[in-house]
């Protein structure tokens, strides 16, 4: 159980790393939203699941409530993360930022 939690946390940290590097490397803010909003959500899901598993190991009522709260955070983040991403994107669209297109491929449309 504790090994499974450790594996989940490590893979979650891996997703977090991918998100951060993606934010640094992607060319414009529209494409930066892809790693920022989603890889972080996935990393949060994995680390939180791992920590909930670790918490629920000692099988008492308080521990079960705590891990249920951690699951509640996951549900909350999964509902709010698309909305936050969309809000930032919408601000960009209304301010009139034009998306970056790959050089040489941009004139296709």
């Amino acid at each position: 159980m504790s090994l499974l939690a450790a594996i989940l946390i490590i893979s979650g940290l891996f997703f977090f790393t991918g998100g951060s590097i993606g934010i640094l490397r992607f060319p414009d803010f529209y494409s930066r939203l892809h790693p920022a909003g989603k890889l972080d959500t996935m990393g949060l899901l994995m680390t939180m699941t791992g920590m909930a598993l670790y918490t629920v190991q000692e099988f008492t009522l308080a521990a079960i409530f705590t891990s249920l709260k951690i699951l509640l955070i996951i549900v909350f983040v999964f509902i709010t993360s698309p909305t936050a991403t969309h809000a930032i994107l919408d601000a960009g669209v209304r301010a009139g930022l034009s998306p970056w297109t790959a050089p040489g491929k941009g004139e296709r449309e």
Partner: peptide, 21 residues
């Protein structure tokens, strides 16, 4: 899809691979 975007983020030739539209 997360795995796909991860492979994009760690790709050394990122600018040539992605094609946002």
């Amino acid at each position: 899809a997360n795995l796909h975007v991860m492979s994009l983020a760690f790709n050394p030739r990122l600018i040539e691979v992605i094609d946002p539209k």
